[in-house]
């Protein structure tokens, strides 16, 4: 009974936080709503990354490439048909001649993200530690390069615009909740627990027959699905996007969110995303001079970068200590 209650809290805590942010988003002015939507989409992206990095303990710089393909898939597929030939003339015919609704585009974005993650993960999941970090960085570079230069699949180096702005407060909240519920279900499942066992003690897990490669690949693919979906949410929130928006800086910010919250817990991912996103928004507004004297441009990233480095150095388990939300007081 108490166990059931404990696990309910682990899901309800993050869900309540998301719902609260979503609710506030409906109360504030349209100019300020974007910050709350951004926070919710950040939660979706960070939790999607967490599904792989948090559960496996393997670093990846590459998850944002799945966000990128999700964003461009959902974006390209929803640009109105009548404008498409004009703004995206070089597209493959099947992309140029079809347009789908936003909801369908989210499903397709998830599928594209998942397939890419599966293909990339097959060889990559044999690596860990530093090699995994560098190889996943290479994935980020390759996907960025292809999206930026290959005009048959997207707008290339130009801005993709005219994407329907269908991610409002409700959609962002539901989207973030969906990602959190899937992540929670996965980490409670047998597969999730096996993967977490390989994180704690790879040798022991392998000794009792857990296939590390297969377990990591599952998580990597699921993470790809969720990243693609979150990318779809992202592009429908922005309405227009360039490849630079889903590249190094987003990788940095989302990793900072995950690290600050605490790499190894779902609660950490959600809390880190909300906290850093809030901080980022406030600093972003300050840079525009909303609070009296302008903060110089760049202050935002200085603060987030310093915060991330400080947490990594002083408290590597993050704000939550890498633990799930719990009703009981932690033993000292």
């Amino acid at each position: 009974m108490t166990r059931r209650l404990g696990s309910t809290v682990q899901l309800l805590g993050p869900a309540a936080a998301i719902a609260a942010v979503g609710f506030v988003a409906t109360l504030v002015s349209r100019a300020n709503e974007i910050y709350f939507l951004n926070a919710l989409v950040s939660v979706a992206i960070v939790v999607a990354i967490y599904v792989f990095v948090g559960n496996s303990g393997v670093l990846s710089f590459g998850q944002i490439s799945f966000v990128a393909v999700g964003a461009f898939a959902a974006g390209v597929l929803t640009v109105p048909l009548e404008s498409k030939v004009g703004v995206l003339p070089d597209l493959f015919p099947f992309l140029r001649d079809h347009t789908v609704g936003s909801a369908t585009s989210l499903a397709l974005a998830a599928a594209v993200g998942g397939v890419l993650a599966l293909v990339v993960g097959l060889p990559l999941m044999r690596l860990s530690g530093l090699a995994a970090g560098i190889a996943t960085f290479a994935v980020l570079e390759i996907v960025h390069n292809l999206l930026r230069e290959w005009t048959k699949i997207g707008p290339g180096a130009t801005t993709l615009s005219l994407v329907p702005e269908t991610t409002g407060a409700l959609q962002a909240t539901l989207g973030a909740l969906l990602v959190v519920v899937v992540a929670f279900a996965y980490q409670r499942s047998r597969l999730g627990r096996l993967l977490r066992a390989t994180r704690e003690d790879p040798a022991a897990a392998q000794a009792v027959g857990v296939g590390i490669h297969a377990q990591r690949l599952w998580a990597f693919t699921l993470s790809g699905v969720l990243c693609g979906f979150a990318g779809g949410l992202y592009v429908h929130m922005l309405g227009s996007i360039t490849t630079e928006q889903v590249y190094l800086e987003l990788t940095f910010i989302t990793l900072a969110m995950l690290v600050v919250g605490g790499l190894t817990s779902l609660w950490g991912a959600v809390l880190g995303a909300l906290a850093v996103s809030g901080l980022d928004s406030v600093l972003g507004k300050a840079e525009e001079g909303s609070f009296g004297p302008d903060l110089p441009t760049g202050s935002r990233l200085v603060v987030v970068g310093a915060l991330m480095a400080l947490v990594l150095i002083l408290r590597p388990s993050g704000l939550t200590g890498g633990r799930e939300l719990s009703l009981r007081r932690r033993p000292a």
Binding site: L59, E249, P296, G298, L312
Partner: peptide
């Protein structure tokens, strides 16, 4: 302070430091 951390943690931290320094440069530059 990171000497006992794993190489992956060190890599992420220097990634953060890179962004930090680049942003400081931006502030100075503009």
């Amino acid at each position: 302070p990171l000497r006992t951390s794993s190489p992956a943690v060190m890599l992420v931290t220097t990634f953060a430091v890179a962004f930090l320094l680049q942003s400081v440069a931006l502030i100075v530059d503009v």
